[in-house]
Amino acid sequence: MKKIIASIAVALTFSFAASAQEVKVNPWQDCGIGAMIFPDNGVAAAISNVIWDLGTTAVTSASASEDSCNSTRVQTAQFINETYNNLEDELVRGEGVHITAMLNLMSCDAASHAETSATIRSEFADQLLGSADQTTVKAERLFNIAETATANCSAS
Rank of each mutant, 00 (worst) to 15 (best):
I5G: 01
A111F: 10
I47Q: 05
V43T: 13
E88V: 06
T135W: 09
F124D: 00
S156T: 08
V25F: 07
V25S: 05
E115D: 12
V59G: 02
H98D: 08
R93K: 12
N86Q: 08
L91F: 11
I99W: 04
R141V: 03
L128H: 04
L91M: 09
S65E: 10
G32P: 07
A77E: 12
L103V: 03
A101F: 05
T119N: 07
L105Q: 07
I33M: 04
L105V: 01
L128N: 04
T13A: 14
K138E: 01
A146I: 07
T119F: 01
E140I: 00
V74D: 03
L128M: 04
S19R: 15
N70I: 02
E90R: 09
L91R: 03
R121A: 03
A6I: 12
E123W: 10
D126M: 15
S154H: 06
V43W: 06
M36H: 10
F16Y: 14
A9T: 14
T148G: 02
S156W: 08
Y84P: 00
I145F: 06
I145L: 04
E115S: 11
N104F: 08
A114T: 14
K3E: 13
Y84E: 00
Q134A: 14
A118T: 04
I51A: 11
N86H: 03
Q29R: 14
E88A: 09
E90D: 08
T76L: 14
D89W: 01
Y84W: 03
E123R: 14
F124H: 02
S48T: 15
S65L: 12
T83C: 00
C31T: 10
T119W: 04
K138P: 02
T13F: 15
F14T: 15
I37D: 01
A17S: 11
D40W: 08
P27Q: 09
S63W: 13
L129P: 01
Q75V: 11
V50D: 06
T83V: 03
M106L: 06
A17Q: 12
I33C: 00
A146D: 05
L105A: 02
A114M: 07
L54G: 10
M106F: 00
F124S: 01
L129Q: 10
D30R: 11
E140W: 04
